[in-house]
Amino acid sequence: MKLTRRHTLMLAAGSAVAALLPMRAAAAAEEAIAAFTGGADVGSEGITLTAPEIAENGNTVPISVSAPGAEAIIIIAAGNPEPGVATFNFGPLAAAQAGSTRIRLAGTQDVVAIARMPDGSFVQASREVKVTIGGCGG
């Protein structure tokens, strides 16, 4: 195949889009975080996020999160087409501010958990999960 001017332009446009995609996902994740925290500073003590280092199947990745004393915990997967995963709100009868579930991950990425404490402060933990087969179909 001869590399014509048109081909070169298309390639350039394609790579520009490819470079933009993860940035757009990251921006969506930041928006989701800002919507939860209201832009407040986020600490890092007092929250534990447990996730596998390597997940063979991104369709069902077991995670658990624990933040003693938290009011609510949000889980965000920045590399997914939609970054929101779940928000846990704890009632007076929750014995521990902790929960486990199974989530979908589109690819290797950081999973972030942010907890809102009763005093209005926020703490965050994140873990990288390497995904062998992504879990978003397509």
Binding site: N59, T60, V61, S64, A77, N80, E82, G84, V85, A86, T87, F88, N89, F90, G91, P92, L93, A94, G99, S100, T101, R102, I103, R104, L105, G135
Partner: peptide
């Protein structure tokens, strides 16, 4: 209330909670 979870499409098939 014990727990109240808001779920997004990133929760796996056959949702599990502990």
């Amino acid at each position: 209330t014990v727990i109240d979870v808001q779920m997004e499409p990133a929760i796996s098939t056959n949702p599990f909670f502990e």
